[in-house]
Amino acid sequence: MDEFMLIFRHQDGTKIASPEQLQIWMKQTMDWIGQITAQNKFSGGNGLLFEDSRVVGHNHVVTDGPFGEIKETIGGYIIVKAASVDEAVAFAKGSPVLQGEGNSVEVRKIAKRDGGH
């Protein structure tokens, strides 16, 4: 069993949703994660906030970020256990993030400590 990281990319991460929209999104996401957890395949995850975020550039130039320059922002990630990348992709397809036009879920296999990929 491998571990895959599902990274949520948002086209417009700064757009503020209404409380009702937030409620729907929260329920869908919790249901989705709940289904993965029920199969004992959820390893963890978290949201990535705009709070205290910086971009450290070449020459150690620190900018407040990722505002402005970057069109796509990462809103969060989860790590799932899966037998294959196809299974991980099947999980990703259920993500409510994909309801937003321009949003995407990136699926990446996490390197194993023992080098056995």
Partner: peptide, 18 residues
Amino acid sequence: EDIASETFVTAVQTWVYR
């Protein structure tokens, strides 16, 4: 008003995972 609204977005973004 923006800060209050964003507070809820941050909350939901964290609560869904934790």
